[in-house]
Nucleic acid binder design. Structure first.
Lengths: 179, 179
DNA sequence: ATAACTGTACCGGCTGGACGGTATAGATAC
DNA sequence: GTATCTATACCGTCCAGCCGGTACAGTTAT
């Protein structure tokens, strides 16, 4: 048996992290290989083009998101609070892959746009299962999106500049559910 | 009197529109000049570097945002509903400049990040003037950010995929105000 | 008045470097 | 004996920034 490929995962993670922390422009082939500690030849061995790298990243996002949806559906606090709570960038794989895909989408990558729309539709469906009123469900969804937007820009939830803790925001979700 | 520079405005608008519709990567000096119908040399005459172009764009954003805040503070419907209503990309100068700045921030431009944080703080302050509860105010703010996030990706508010109209969302804001 | 000069607005070609991708020769683990 | 890499050289393209030049409006000296 040939030895298992460990460079592939390292390359994907390096690409993802570069997208998140430095932006699409800085995520060059050379930079990805260097960050992963892999030679450029090694990169091209696993991913024949830069777009192949992007496609693999979107596949990983879809897999991580499917896993996350299972947890969301079974969360004791309910899907809505789970969604809002995990919308602040908490450092999970999902978070990083999601933000990376946003970077790609903003750079004009059509596949990334489609993948993100898929994800949003699935999330909204889970929230609707708990909150029947469509407008309220959408409002909760948008709160989560806003949090993602924020932490994808600043790197974290800037609690101090808002003066509102995540816990208090979850309280708002409760109030919305009860309205 | 020297003849007035008309290329400068055209260049800024071209840069902004390219950032919004094609992404940061596509907004090259050549592309900006071509879109504005100006030569490369003409561009460099008005903006000595690409970063100077970005700085000018952020200045224009701040100006447009200050103007928008005046309207927001005086809106008969109240600042909160005004904010949410105008968070869907409606094609104003503010919207375009804002989305352009988001693109820059996501590409790692520090000045853009600072400008956006400034804007958000000012918006939140206006919302707080109407909605005293900090958590509720933040929730409204995040709804608006989520909408911006959405329309900056997809280009418009995807009402059909959400199944919720903007009017219904404004209804949620009313309910939040009354809670 | 008009020639000479000045500053602003703009043109378009060029260069050096970075980037995506190719190619190839070999090393290492299983 | 092959899948998984390393190392390095190379090519064509694209891009940011630079530079010499043009056009023209207004100013100054004569």
């Amino acid at each position: 048996m040939p030895r298992p490929p460990k460079a592939r995962d390292a390359l994907l993670a390096a690409y993802r992290d570069l997208l998140v922390s430095e932006g699409e422009r800085a995520a060059t082939m050379d930079a990805v290989a260097a960050r992963a500690g892999v030679s450029k030849g090694g990169l091209l061995y696993h991913f024949k083009s830069k777009d192949a790298l992007a496609e693999a990243l979107l596949d990983a996002l879809r897999a991580a998101a499917a896993e996350d949806r299972r947890r969301m559906a079974e969360a004791p606090e309910g899907p809505s609070k789970y969604f809002v709570r995990t919308s602040v960038n908490s450092g999970t794989d999902m978070d990083a892959f999601f933000v990376a895909a946003v970077r790609l989408a903003q750079a004009g990558h059509e596949g990334a746009l489609a993948a993100l729309e898929e994800l949003d539709a699935a999330w909204l469906a889970l929230i609707r299962a708990e909150i029947e009123d469509p407008a309220l469900a959408t409002a909760v969804m948008l709160m989560g999106e806003g949090l993602y937007h924020y932490s994808s820009l600043a790197g974290a939830w800037p609690e101090k500049s808002f003066g509102t803790s995540l816990g208090e925001l979850l309280g708002v979700v409760d109030r919305l559910r009860g309205v």
